[in-house]
Amino acid sequence: VKVFRALYTFEPRTPDELYFEEGDIIYITDMSDTNWWKGTSKGRTGLIPSNYVAEQ
Rank of each mutant, 00 (worst) to 15 (best):
L18K: 01
Q56W: 15
V53F: 07
D16A: 13
T14Q: 10
Q56M: 15
T14D: 09
D16H: 12
W37R: 01
D24M: 05
S41T: 14
L7C: 11
R44I: 09
T29D: 08
D33M: 06
Y52W: 07
S50R: 12
D16S: 11
K42Q: 13
S41M: 12
I26A: 00
S32Y: 08
N35Q: 14
K38Q: 11
I26M: 05
P49W: 05
F4P: 00
R5I: 15
I28N: 00
Y27F: 14
G43F: 04
Q56Y: 15
T9V: 04
F20W: 01
T40D: 06
T45G: 07
E22I: 13
D16W: 13
F4C: 09
Y27S: 06
L18S: 00
R44F: 08
T40F: 15
L18N: 01
Y8R: 14
F10W: 15
I25W: 09
G43T: 05
F10T: 07
S50E: 03
P49N: 07
D30R: 03
I25D: 06
W36F: 08
M31S: 08
D24W: 14
V3S: 07
G46M: 02
I25C: 09
D33Y: 04
E55F: 13
S32R: 10
K38R: 14
D24V: 04
G46Q: 00
I25A: 06
L7P: 01
T14P: 02
P49K: 06
V3N: 04
Y52L: 10
Q56V: 15
R13V: 08
Q56N: 12
F20K: 00
G46D: 00
I28Q: 00
N35F: 15
P49V: 02
S41W: 05
F20S: 01
K38N: 07
N51L: 10
F10D: 00
W37P: 00
V53C: 03
I28A: 02
M31Q: 13
D30E: 10
E21L: 09
T9P: 06
E22Y: 08
R13Q: 13
V3A: 11
D33K: 06
R5T: 11
T9I: 04
V3G: 06
Y19E: 10
I26T: 07
S50Y: 06
F10S: 13
E55H: 09
I25Y: 10
F10G: 01
L7F: 03
K2E: 05
E17T: 04
G43S: 05
P12H: 03
E55W: 11
E55T: 08
D24K: 00
N35S: 12
P12E: 02
E11Q: 14
Y52N: 02
R5L: 12
I48W: 03
D24H: 02
R44C: 07
R13D: 08
I28V: 14
N51S: 14
W36C: 07
R44V: 11
L7A: 03
T34G: 13
G39N: 02
T34S: 14
D30P: 03
P12M: 09
V1Q: 11
N51R: 12
D30C: 06
V53W: 03
I48F: 15
L47S: 05
P15L: 11
L18F: 03
Y27H: 08
F20N: 01
Y27M: 11
R13L: 10
D24T: 05
Y19G: 15
T29Y: 15
V1S: 12
E17N: 03
W36R: 05
P12F: 06
F20M: 09
G43E: 05
L7N: 03
A54T: 15
M31V: 07
R13T: 14
I48N: 00
V1K: 11
M31H: 06
S50A: 14
V1E: 11
V53A: 03
S41G: 04
K38S: 09
E11R: 13
V53Y: 02
N51E: 11
S50H: 07
E21K: 10
N51W: 15
Y8I: 08
S50L: 03
I48C: 05
Y27R: 06
E55V: 12
D16V: 08
T45M: 10
